[in-house]
């Protein structure tokens, strides 16, 4: 079996290379509790496309640290009666932006509204916020690595993702008991994180997830491409790895594999065995940690890329059978 990582047999039993902090679940329940206590109001600005029958908007929310976060929001054509729609919250890959308005229009064809946030400081419309202590001479993923856990960039984008679920519930046309999450790469990691903390999310699509098993990423030299900030950190700040444990202890709080056992809804996940961005082993560590109803579609000759076959399966999951 081809691949960029260990054999498929080994992948199927691999559990990850770094333990979860003992207070991981407590830590994130606390974060969620604080967000639920935070008062905010999604601001909606209509985006006009001449001739379009769908309703396109830009939603802006203010994160607790004052950073303005933005998302695309598309609802199906308005009927005669006002109604509510099931909502897909779709997160994007690193370091990009929410998919195009055109791309996201697909959900209306199967009766869903879609909310697609832009991660702070990446290719979309959200502000960047403060970087936290540490170097900023590489992409934002590992900003704040010399600060406390809550100041890590990765902590902030997970927190932002949780806030977007709360924002989705505040939107008046959302059928609150029917929120599903989806993501690609980084976005799949974020989708899984939100599914872990909101047990009411019944379905999660995770297309080639990343943000998982950072120790494995480092150990197997996958700290290039999206993860290159980790390599720069060690080269610049800790070349002899004297404070290595401190770094990986922090990263364990933002490791998506540690969210996996908390998920209660269904998970549909994919991995391309040619993935050189998010190592397949790190992805399997996530999948093997899931204790919910789950299905893993493994593509031997695909890499870190959109796979039509997987999208077909996701579409199948969205249409009530």
């Amino acid at each position: 079996m081809p691949g960029t990582d260990m054999s498929l047999e080994q992948l199927k039993i691999y559990q990850g290379s770094y333990p979860a902090p003992v207070d991981f679940e407590f830590h994130w329940e606390e974060v969620k509790r604080k967000l639920e206590a935070y008062t905010f109001k999604p601001e909606e600005e209509v985006v006009r496309f001449a001739g379009s029958k769908l309703r396109y908007s830009r939603i802006t929310i203010t994160a607790p640290d004052g950073t303005l976060l933005r998302a695309k929001y598309i609802r199906p054509q308005e009927g005669e009666q006002p109604r509510k729609y099931p909502l897909v919250v779709q997160f994007h890959d690193y370091p990009q932006a929410s998919r195009s308005w055109f791309h996201l229009s697909r959900y209306a064809a199967v009766g869903y509204a879609v909310l697609a946030p832009d991660c702070r400081g990446q290719g979309g419309c959200s502000e960047a916020g403060e970087p936290g202590k540490g170097a900023t001479g590489f992409g934002p993923m590992f900003f704040g690595l010399q600060d406390r856990v809550e100041k890590l960039y990765l902590h902030k984008i997970i927190e932002d993702a949780l806030l977007w679920i709360l924002a989705g519930k505040l939107l008046t046309e959302t059928e609150k008991e029917k929120i599903v999450v989806y993501g690609e790469g980084q976005g799949a990691g974020l989708a899984l994180s939100t599914a872990a903390l909101f047990s009411e999310i019944g379905l999660c699509g995770a297309h080639y997830p990343m943000l998982c098993d950072y120790y494995r990423v480092w150990e197997k030299d996958f700290d290039i491409n999206a993860y290159e900030g980790l390599r720069y950190y060690f080269r610049w700040k800790d070349p002899l790895h004297e404070r290595e444990k401190e770094v990986f202890d922090k990263l364990a709080y933002v490791d998506v594999k540690n969210f996996a056992p908390m998920i209660r809804g269904k998970v549909l996940m994919s991995t391309g065995l040619q993935d050189v961005v998010s190592p397949p082993s790190a992805q399997f560590a996530v999948f093997n940690g899931l204790q919910c109803e789950k299905r893993h579609l493994v593509y031997p000759k695909h890499g870190h890329e959109l796979i039509n076959f997987f999208e077909n399966e996701w579409l199948n999951c969205l249409i009530p059978g």
Binding site: K53, A108, A109, V110, N308, N312, L315
Partner: peptide
Amino acid sequence: SRGWFEQTAFAGMG
């Protein structure tokens, strides 16, 4: 032809 979901973007627009 791209996946079914990709083809549905136009269907979403009627």
